[in-house]
Design a binder for these strands. Structure first.
Lengths: 334, 334
DNA sequence: CTGTTAGCGCGTTCAA
DNA sequence: TTGAACGCGCTAACAG
């Protein structure tokens, strides 16, 4: 039923090795026979079988990427960066959603490895011992993308989340704010959660502002949780004059909550966050936020992976990309 | 280096056929030998090679899905529906971004087919003759997801975009609006573009409202293009009293543009759209929009594909899911 | 420049 | 209930 390389060989009157050569762009083929082969391919509608090829060559020219949540704009942007570089190097990517669940992450890593991907890009939350366990059983390179492991054993590319948060909060402090609330992610999440919280505390600390537990709420990164958290702050006897949100989406929730209470951003309360997702410009007032170079994180990590796959030497296996605060309209001096 | 089924066989003191049986849950294995084999697998850290398996069995338990734009929330939601059902039936999915470009779509379809996926889910814009061409060369089932082909030759699941637009505009008309502008998608896009535009015209027509070319702008589905289009309308001598946007994101752009002009939604201008993406509730005022059951479109199309892959008979290969207008805060009577 | 020949790792008869 | 042997479609030496 399906036409194989043998059929093409017969049709073109050559051996299968020759067909294989022209399909793989091997230069050692007389232009004339190459032409004959191409014609036979055309006539028969031959389509190379990537599975057989993968088995024979032990390469699949595909890299697996595990993404925590496909409907999260941040990760989608990272994925675009990955994609573009992958295309450039002629790798296909197979994207697997892991739903932010650890066991699904592990499962997905394993099926990807079973499928014999040539490399793996892991973006996700915490990198636990179980993850490392799964990674260790791999004989293809792996790079962490928008995450890091504690020990720094695995190549990774990310920003410095702690510093990004520090800079965001310092921006607020520079504008004269003293009562600064935080909408945090879960502290189990080392990057977007814990590290950003640490940055918040350090900024307060270096400014000599006392840390106040009542001014911190933990959200789940969603819009609604930003609203919930903000509601809590607005019911406080001493309302904060500014809010730092661990992510844009929660910040937007906070802004709308403030507005729903009849207050104004930024004149009544300033809001800043980290991410600079596309949504940051899609609110009024537009969100002041620390830009995380999502696309670049994807691109650089993919580039790093290609080097690893080709066994080229890499000067640095832990790369930290710069962040930058983008001033828009949601922060004002007090 | 890598441990194969032979290694396991030797370690367990059985033949490779037996190992294959236990790995594939074949019941014809004595419990005791099964146990021995499992232990050997454990000891050696054996991981079945899906590529070899695919070659031998001619099945990959993988379905390819081509997605037009991974950073579009609508498609991401469809993808979740696909995912969930795929998991339920033990298929892996390999997601390929096609960047909304026709040639990339074709290329991606071909590589997916080369990779011997067991089935293909295509979501995208227009289904051209070239697409059909590529589909015809496939010997695995294909279903269109959130699109349809003109001739209806290929199984598909979608909503009735024309009717959805008609209902949206009719909603406006029912509220007394007579001057209704439209922010359309490109007319080359049969579903989100052309069909929705047709629905707009038909609604006007059945209400006896004359169609006015000046009240239609074509956007590119992005926020900014919603702003641009709205700007145009606001500069008109006769400003419309309501706007119908082909998608939520452009509608949000329109809302913000109106607000930036110092006008109010909905008291000055009403806005309605189609999609009901998560963002619809993430604006003030919250967006009134026609709900497209994105998740269900994904789920149903994947379910349909599983049937096709198992060669089960399907009663209906063209399925049209219902839509519904969701009233929120952006539309008011005039 | 071209053809022959081994496998790649596994599923699957067919016998035993 | 188990094993031996063949073949899936292709790449990669090796010869010529």
């Amino acid at each position: 039923m399906t036409v194989t390389i043998y059929d093409v060989a017969r049709e073109a009157g050559v051996s299968m090795a020759t067909v294989s050569r022209v399909v793989n762009n091997n230069p050692n083929v007389k232009p004339q026979t190459r032409k004959k082969v191409f014609e036979a391919i055309e006539r028969l509608g031959y389509r190379p079988n990537a599975v057989a090829r993968g088995l024979a060559s032990k390469k699949t020219t595909t890299v697996g990427v595990v993404i925590p949540d496909i409907s999260n704009a941040i990760f989608a942007e990272v994925a675009r960066g990955i994609e573009d570089i992958a295309n450039m190097y002629h790798y296909n990517i197979i994207l697997c959603n892991a739903d932010k669940k650890k066991d699904k992450e592990i499962r997905v890593i394993n099926t990807l490895l079973e499928k014999q991907v040539d490399g793996l890009l892991f973006m996700g939350g915490a990198v636990t011992e179980e993850h490392l366990q799964a990674f260790r059983t791999s004989n293809v390179p792996i790079v962490l993308c928008a995450t890091t492991d504690e020990q720094g054993a695995i190549p990774s590319v990310d920003i410095d989340h702690e510093a990004a948060a520090f800079d965001a909060v310092s921006e607020l402090i520079a504008k004269g704010h003293k009562s600064i609330a935080m909408i945090s992610g879960t502290l189990q999440d080392p990057a977007n959660g814990y590290a950003r919280f640490q940055g918040y505390k350090r900024a307060l600390d270096t400014a000599g502002i006392a840390y106040n537990e009542d001014l911190v709420r933990v959200g789940n990164y969603r819009y609604e949780s930003g609203i919930e958290a903000m509601k809590y702050f607005l019911e406080l006897a001493d309302k904060p004059s500014a809010v730092f949100s661990a992510t844009d989406e929660m910040a937007i929730g906070a802004i709308h909550c403030i507005q729903d209470y009849g207050l104004k951003v930024p004149s009544d309360i300033s809001v800043i966050s980290v991410d600079n997702s596309r949504m940051a410009s899609m609110v009024r007032p537009q969100l002041t936020t620390v830009a995380q170079p999502m696309y670049d994180i994807g691109a650089v990590s993919m580039r790093l992976l290609t080097k690893l796959m080709k066994k080229e030497s890499v000067e640095q296996s832990k790369v930290v990309l710069p962040h930058e605060v983008i001033s828009r309209q949601s922060v004002v001096s007090v």
